[in-house]
Design a protein around this nucleic acid. Structure first.
Lengths: 145, 145
DNA sequence: GACGATAGTACGAGACTCTGACTTAATGGT
DNA sequence: ACCATTAAGTCAGAGTCTCGTACTATCGTC
């Protein structure tokens, strides 16, 4: 795995890690210091109308148990709540709570900041190109979309 | 953090995860089933002439203790060895052992396969463009290169 | 109503990561 | 040379993350 300084996996990981670092650093600075990366990776997949645990697990690439464990903590910290799913008595929907929405708002701002910096580095046209390529690539790689 | 289906962090994470999944699946299938992702992320940073633990920790974004823990396991499994650093009596160099080199060879092949698939999806020109953009972006994001 | 599939939970084990404290060796100033 | 400071690495402990196995409750179909 080493050697090749241009390993595509590493090339993707480096900026991913950078943006995640920034988001969590600034989230913590803004008082959202009780959320972890693992929690964030699940939280991130919650849809606008809430999501089922199984769906979050599938999209996040973890087991139901792990997703449940993380959602328990998100719930205890006030970022999400669980409500019954009206369409299925077995299921519950994980929905974003006010504190969660506030964290989302902050995160969106940080991501926008990072994007601006990257755009400054790459140039507007190439930055747009990067986003477009990654979006396209998602179709070929996100089996859990 | 959720909502925005075009969140740049997620767009980077999805293909990263996909390629990592593939590498570890095929590594396991090829008999390298005693290496974990965390170990791989450190292993990946070992330079051609070996690397110091502290350097691996820094580049991988983990503490020295964590890197040491992971290298202990890589060493026990025969992927790396530790040799004294001739230039510093305190340090040792983590170098790739034969079994590690074999795993590297296999990984390189898998990554090449994935790249071919992505190129088929994106087209040759755009795939090249993606690699080039990520390489450029690395300069702005990999503080530990 | 009975049956296989699905949503979710409970429990326990293993893997990962960190903080704090420590040992040993190198470096720089005197 | 000597001492203070810095750097490389280890040790011990706790907290977090993840999974496999096993379970209950509900759904959908017959």
């Amino acid at each position: 795995m080493p050697d090749d300084a241009l390993n595509l996996g590493l090339l993707l990981f480096i900026p991913y890690r950078a943006i995640e670092d920034r988001v969590f650093d600034e989230l913590a600075a803004a008082g959202f210091d009780d959320i972890s990366r693992a929690q964030g990776r699940v939280f991130q997949r919650i849809g606008p109308n809430g999501s089922r645990l199984t769906e979050l697990a599938r999209q996040s690439g973890v087991t139901k148990q792990t997703a449940g464990f993380l959602v328990d903590q998100l719930e205890a910290a006030g970022y999400v709540t669980r409500v019954p799913d009206p369409s299925d008595g077995r299921a519950r929907l994980v929905v974003i709570a006010p504190r969660g929405a506030a964290a989302v708002a902050r995160s969106v701002g940080v991501v926008a900041d990072v994007e601006r910096e990257w755009t400054a580095h790459l140039g507007a046209e190439r930055a747009e190109s990067l986003r477009e390529l990654l979006t396209d690539l998602r179709a070929a790689t996100d089996h859990y979309a």
